[in-house]
Design a binder for these strands. Sequence first.
DNA 1: GGGGTTGGTAAGTAGTAACTTACGGTAAGT
DNA 2: ACTTACCGTAAGTTACTACTTACCAACCCC
Lengths: 111, 111
Amino acid sequence: MTDQMALAQAFTALADPTRREIFERVAARPHAVGELAEELPVSRPAVSQHLKVLSDAGLVTARPDGTRRIYALDPQGLAGLRDYLDGFWQRSLRAFARAAEEHTHTRQENP
Amino acid sequence: MTDQMALAQAFTALADPTRREIFERVAARPHAVGELAEELPVSRPAVSQHLKVLSDAGLVTARPDGTRRIYALDPQGLAGLRDYLDGFWQRSLRAFARAAEEHTHTRQENP
DNA sequence: GGGGTTGGTAAGTAGTAACTTACGGTAAGT
DNA sequence: ACTTACCGTAAGTTACTACTTACCAACCCC
């Protein structure tokens, strides 16, 4: 439930190109808001709003440093996303293997 | 480049709740379009449009069966998504460890 | 071949989301 | 204390997207 919500938020957050760009830069190394705004073709408030979405999705965290706010990656959020995708991946493969097996049986029974 | 495009499409595809629901049902077992439309609170054309997005993202494939079209999961697309996320995860962890190490050195040099 | 399924596409609409400018609020330097 | 730097939020606009109904094409059964 909550995992589903968090996952949906994560996917939604990473769906937007600008936000994914911000996320990747933050993941590479911590960044202040102004730094990101200088490197990107959007205004600083836009970056701020994107960071809020990423933060709500649990993908990044903010650390105050004077008047600046240093945003860094939140490994927990990324780990959760990865774990869910892994589980989903395994479940899908099982279903796939099962379907293939049934298909083989059908073919053996009706060649 | 192309991987980036595909990844963006995959994230965008899975960002929508209805589309993720469709994707999960298709991943569990192959479905026809009408089947999905019956189980979901949206019309059949809506399901068709969602399936087109998922198909363009390389997440599902369609197999004609008479007048019906059976949609099944595309393991390659899911594998690509998983691999990219894994790579991204490892890169991020490395950057994180590096930053932590530098932070430790700083603290040791300036206790 | 006609009637009945099954699905993809076109056109139109309502809701949402990404962006902008403008403003307020907090911390550091002089 | 006053200014300066940095950031988040509010309000408004534009673009996109998810959905609907209507229509058309392809395939199976009689």
